[in-house]
Design a protein around this nucleic acid. Structure first.
Lengths: 203, 203
DNA sequence: CTATTCAGTTTAACCGTTTGGTTAAATATA
DNA sequence: TATATTTAACCAAACGGTTAAACTGAATAG
């Protein structure tokens, strides 16, 4: 039908980088085009305007995390296993693609003002997933009676901020920057999350 | 010496609002002026350019949280008390002034690219504080051997995201939005943080 | 007591640049 | 040729920042 055909995913990756680094407002359409080695008008022809670029990036990222969570769940039998698997799944997903947590945290900062409506369903689904895991854990007797929403926010926000601050933590305190790899981040969050900080029998 | 004199704090409050809602890049100098009911040139005359406005806002916010933490520490004797007090102190501070967590989360999202250098010292100090509390807790036998940096990030990121998403959570799931007030947020984070999610004797 | 000065303060109007977005023409394939 | 793709050039609007003039009220001089 026609000439070389630019891969749409190249555009979306470039857009994801720009949005993650600069935020929606800070992102420059020209800059996205430059990152993708593409003429600016290409973006509008192939994807759409700035908002549409952002929408696509957000929904792609959400899908990526969702499948990571689903994979995690499918390989775990007990509730504690499931939580550990989810934590590990998200952390590894984030390690491969650091752009998503940055975008999500920015959305939270702005009260979801620029969040595409479709994304809300994904969040709602995730909330339901955690809730059912917690319910299962309580019923099977492995979990205390904890609030599932708080747990969800502790898990995700801890992973996101720990992952995004690896560089910053090394700059601030090179001798003791805390966990830096996906594995050590998972482990240390896991340790506190599962057992708490109190020594048993304290309270 | 001269006329009415505009209160500088009015300008800084307006700037804080704008930066929190829109981010540094999204913030409009004209918009800050409008919020403060002040001519735009006033901002430059009284405070400085956009960067300087932001610097002042960030340092003010940091100082506010720092004193909240110091007050919390002064009234607690054991390490667990201190952690609870810090958590409560930050949450209450955030409830009064929702602008700070928004700005901090945005900085984390951007790897601290727009963070004024002076702010790094404050973060470093906070890391030291948590570290010494954890050390004390381990020595006095009340804490397990946990990573203080992970604990710090769990505490702050959980408070910030829970506080910033009160509206969003109500929109997504009106029947079960999770904790909404400063007190309930503190309590639910506390519960998980201190005791973990596992029922004793499980593991 | 009034007029004048003067420094600090406030403002409307303006400026060069950058921005998101468009368009008409050019290019490449089939 | 017909169609899908790519591009350089362009545009109005919005942006951060500046400036010179206007205003204010206390201090000073007559």
């Amino acid at each position: 039908m026609s000439p070389k055909i630019i891969d749409e995913s190249v555009i979306l990756s470039a857009a994801a980088e720009e949005f993650a680094e600069m935020g929606f407002n800070g992102a420059r359409v020209d800059s996205i085009a430059k990152r993708a080695n593409v003429n600016k008008a290409m973006l509008y022809y192939r994807v759409g305007d700035k908002k549409e670029l952002y929408r696509r990036v957000v929904l792609n990222g959400q899908k990526s995390i969702q499948t990571a969570i689903m994979n995690a769940l499918s390989t775990s039998n007990t509730a504690p296993d499931a939580i550990v698997a989810i934590l590990k799944g998200i952390t590894e997903n984030v390690a491969e693609n650091r752009l998503i947590p940055s975008i999500i945290l920015r959305e939270i900062s702005g009260s979801g003002k620029t969040l595409p409506e479709e994304a809300l369903k994904g969040i709602s689904k995730f909330m339901g997933t955690i809730k059912s895991v917690v319910k299962m854990g309580i019923e099977e007797g492995t979990f205390r009676d904890i609030d599932s929403i708080t747990l969800q926010f502790i898990i995700t926000s801890a992973i996101f901020t720990m992952s995004l601050t690896t560089q910053l933590r090394q700059n601030i305190n090179p001798e003791n920057p805390g966990p830096l790899t996906a594995e050590t981040i998972t482990d240390s969050i896991n340790d506190i999350l599962l057992n708490g900080i109190l020594k048993e029998g304290t309270v």
